[in-house]
Design a binder for these strands. Structure first.
Lengths: 187, 187
DNA sequence: TAGATCATGTAATTTGTTACATGATTCG
DNA sequence: CGAATCATGTAACAAATTACATGATCTA
């Protein structure tokens, strides 16, 4: 009966995977890095951390080194590590590509550290398959409806299609980057 | 003392701009069109419509034509039209490009019908300026931090950069499309 | 020592999600 | 007639936003 774990929760688990961090550290990451459109407001982060701790996925303990401000460092528990790995291992469906691409990229960003390179390559392969199948569907939709659409509407649609094409190219580049790396690492 | 109007509210105003529609119509639009990642759940749409009506931005009246199911058609009030135009006319800032690109595209999609082509061209020009300035910032960020990043992290960042480059190209294509159209229409 | 920043939290309000409830009408 | 779909809503709950509150420590 594990309760639902939101995208923010998973982002926090992913960030806590490699190294422990405080609520303030996590807020700064959301506020200053170009990726991740999570809110850095205390009213979002601290309750989320409290939820995760109540659910047994992380544990925080106050650090009181001399000359430092008191801060609560959180780290993953065994259950938290399992939940992170479960989320990262989820099979990817068409629906994810259509409307949850940001979540897929987030999973990708955490994946190498938590699951290793072979899992990343499998993930990228599945993503390439889905994108390759989806892009023509969008083109078909556009060419069917274009005549009946105002200029701005089909340009907005073209915007979406362009995004998916770029994502597909990126996906292929990423696969090459990982395969090259693998070969060099384990000849 | 106009109360806050959310993105969903604005999306509804934009859709009601050209033609009146029922809650069910709007739900279907969110459920079936490729763009717009709004929820089509009744628990989101109907309360939003009720809010907008309470705020005086739309007005609904029940349609009871013979042989048709009863449905409540909403249309913009004068205040609603003003609010839509105000939202569409907002100046665009760096911050919008960084983390609210979806809202900008939504505004673009509604803009021609509500404000006319010259406004669209001004909007696209401002967007091009912001994107042209922002892309190099991202490249600089990547080349500064790349050495210290794991492969997956810089690939995720590259994903983001690629998205913005595509958006910039799209923006320039859209400007050409609108300028070409304008010339042909009014020689 | 005053102001900035570090650091954690809470409260009120709004909003969205999920699930349920209800009834009319069309179609096979 | 029964099932699917049209059509509108509500209730319980979870979550985010905004604003406030508090206090320690660093720096000018």
């Amino acid at each position: 009966m594990t309760r639902a774990v939101s995208l923010l929760d998973h982002a926090l688990l992913g960030l806590l995977g490699p190294a422990p961090a405080s609520g303030y550290d996590l807020r700064k990451i959301f506020a200053t890095t170009p990726m991740g459109s999570f809110s850095d407001s205390p009213g979002a982060i601290y309750p989320a951390l409290a939820r995760l701790e109540a659910g047994g996925l992380i544990r925080g303990h106050v650090e009181e080194s001399a000359g430092l401000r008191r801060r609560k460092l959180y780290r993953l528990t065994a259950a938290g590590t399992m939940e992170l790995r479960r989320w990262l291992s989820l099979a990817l469906a068409r629906e994810d590509v259509v409307s949850r691409m940001d979540e897929l990229i987030l999973r990708f960003a955490f994946m190498e550290a938590a699951l290793g390179k072979p899992s990343v390559l499998k993930f990228l392969g599945a993503l390439e398959t889905e994108l390759t199948a989806y892009v023509p569907v969008l083109h078909a939709h556009l060419s069917t409806h274009r005549a009946a659409m105002p200029t701005s509407a089909w340009l907005a649609l073209e915007f979406g299609i362009g995004s998916y094409e770029t994502q597909l190219e990126w996906c292929r580049r990423a696969i090459r980057a990982y395969e090259g790396k693998k070969r060099r690492t384990k000849p």
